[in-house]
């Protein structure tokens, strides 16, 4: 096969892009395997050190927080539950509301769609006080429900699902109807499998969105057992100023690497669906 110059350039650009993404992660990982002192004195590392197990063990299991009750492992679990809940509910609710908007031709479908769309203009940060008031009146502070519920409505996902459903030919619905499908089975047997790729993509985006929430869990939780990863990240950075000890740089890197694992797992797990949808366009 002859390689064209253009292809070489394209490859160089792609390789540079990959390096740009991967190198910082590698440095963080390599640095997380050294002694904090080494890092502080010698700077970041490119090679793996000998403190790997110790650092990670310490980060995962050492109790922190004001009352020294919460471990990083617990925070990862909290964040994972929160992100999973948000992503799942967002996808389910958006897919179903888009279904209603597209297939039930009621008069208010268009105004309702725009109403949903307008909520893009009022993200959680804007409505944080009313949201907090409602959640606390419902007695949901310091609970997973309280962490998840106010974040599950999604105009973006509803919009994407709506656009997708609109491209599905009417005959498909009609012939499913004649085959005895009801509203529910059409959704489950047709729209869900046909929008698999879409669902996977939305789930990934929404998972990352949920995982990286900071302000809402900060306000919502007073009990340390509900703290999340992003809150922990702040704590691990500020903690060193309080004590006399050296900043625990290596542990910070370990924490960062660990915090990336849940989203990466989700992507790895869903990419099969995702890629299958991309390469096999089903007519």
């Amino acid at each position: 096969m002859k390689i064209k110059p253009l292809q070489i350039i394209a490859h160089i650009i792609l390789i540079l892009g990959v390096l740009l993404m991967v190198v910082p992660i590698w440095i963080s990982f390599a640095s997380s395997s050294h002694d904090s002192v080494t890092i502080l004195t010698e700077g970041m590392k490119f090679h793996i050190g000998d403190q790997l197990a110790r650092n990670y063990n310490e980060v995962l299991n050492e109790k922190g927080g004001w009352s020294e009750e919460v471990t990083a492992a617990k925070m990862f679990i909290n964040s994972f539950i929160m992100a999973l809940g948000i992503a799942t509910l967002k996808v389910v609710i958006s897919a179903m509301s888009a279904y209603a908007l597209v297939y039930y031709r009621f008069k208010l479908a268009v105004p309702i769609f725009w109403l949903i769309f307008i909520t893009l203009l009022v993200p959680l940060e804007v409505r944080i006080f009313p949201s907090y008031k409602i959640v606390s009146d419902l007695g949901l502070t310091n609970s997973y429900t309280g962490l998840i519920l106010p974040l599950v409505a999604s105009a973006t996902a509803t919009f994407f699902f709506r656009q997708f459903y609109k491209t599905i030919p009417d005959e498909l619905l009609e012939s499913a109807k004649l085959d005895g499908a009801n509203a529910w089975s059409f959704f489950i047997d047709f729209l869900v499998p046909l929008s698999k790729t879409m669902i996977a993509a939305m789930f990934i985006f929404m998972f990352v969105y949920g995982y990286s929430q900071y302000l809402w869990p900060l306000i919502m939780t007073t009990a340390e057992e509900y703290w999340t990863v992003v809150m922990g990240m702040k704590i691990i950075y500020t903690e060193s100023y309080e004590g006399v000890a050296l900043p625990r740089t290596a542990e910070r890197f370990a924490y960062i690497i660990l915090s990336m694992i849940p989203p990466v797992l989700v992507v790895v797990f869903l990419q099969k669906w995702f890629i299958k949808g991309l390469i096999q366009t089903e007519k």
């Binding site: 005959e171 498909l172 009609e174 012939s175 004649l178 047709f190 046909l194 089903e282 007519k283």
Partner: peptide
Amino acid sequence: AMVFQNYALYPH
């Protein structure tokens, strides 16, 4: 039962 012009087979 109906047969449509574009068949409307279930693609998935």
